[in-house]
Simulated assay, not measured.
Amino acid sequence: MAKQWAKSFYNSDAWKVTRLQFLVDHAFTCEMCGGHAEEVHHEVELTPENIHDPAVTLNPMLLHALCGDCHKLVTKRQKNMRRPDCDPGFAFDTDGNLSPRGV
């Protein structure tokens, strides 16, 4: 389900044409499992800051043809990667050691 700030983009003719052409170019084949692709995934997560940048939103180099199951899996992985590894007051240094932030 598209976020409110992204709905106008996903309903735009530019996205609909790009999406369909991308799926046609990839023979409606999922890039992960080889199944039937019906979704196009943005490699760069869309945000309110980049939603109007066609170099991000319409760039075929940043798109992936996926089936519904693989799209859910990729999206879940991306969300899990955004979670912090540790308490916000700490960070890993260049040697991989956990240290208080700002030290």
Score class of each variant (00 low, 15 high):
99 S>K: 14
28 F>W: 15
76 K>Q: 12
81 M>L: 14
23 L>E: 04
32 M>A: 11
35 G>A: 12
1 M>A: 10
65 A>W: 00
42 H>Q: 06
100 P>D: 07
91 A>Q: 14
39 E>D: 12
43 E>I: 15
67 C>K: 02
71 H>M: 02
67 C>S: 07
64 H>G: 00
15 W>P: 09
57 T>A: 14
9 F>Y: 11
18 T>Y: 01
65 A>P: 02
39 E>F: 02
17 V>L: 12
34 G>K: 04
15 W>V: 05
20 L>W: 06
56 V>F: 05
59 N>E: 06
4 Q>D: 15
40 V>I: 05
8 S>E: 14
63 L>H: 03
39 E>A: 03
47 T>G: 08
12 S>T: 10
32 M>V: 15
38 E>V: 10
35 G>N: 10
13 D>Q: 13
47 T>I: 10
73 L>K: 13
12 S>C: 09
42 H>W: 01
97 N>E: 11
66 L>Q: 01
85 D>A: 14
87 D>E: 10
54 P>T: 08
92 F>A: 03
21 Q>T: 09
73 L>N: 09
58 L>K: 04
9 F>M: 07
19 R>S: 05
14 A>G: 00
102 G>L: 07
95 D>M: 08
55 A>T: 12
9 F>N: 08
72 K>V: 09
77 R>H: 12
70 C>A: 06
53 D>A: 09
95 D>S: 14
53 D>Q: 12
89 G>C: 08
92 F>R: 11
10 Y>K: 09
37 A>P: 02
59 N>F: 04
27 A>F: 11
85 D>E: 13
32 M>N: 11
74 V>M: 09
26 H>R: 14
16 K>L: 12
34 G>H: 04
49 E>M: 08
96 G>I: 07
48 P>T: 08
52 H>F: 05
93 D>Y: 06
12 S>K: 12
2 A>D: 13
68 G>P: 02
103 V>T: 13
88 P>T: 08
3 K>M: 06
28 F>S: 05
15 W>T: 07
67 C>F: 02
13 D>Y: 05
96 G>P: 03
25 D>P: 02
71 H>E: 01
34 G>Y: 01
43 E>W: 05
40 V>N: 01
22 F>I: 04
7 K>T: 14
42 H>V: 08
102 G>T: 08
61 M>L: 13
3 K>W: 06
21 Q>F: 02
91 A>W: 01
69 D>L: 10
42 H>I: 06
36 H>I: 11
55 A>H: 10
6 A>W: 03
63 L>A: 03
7 K>G: 00
12 S>N: 10
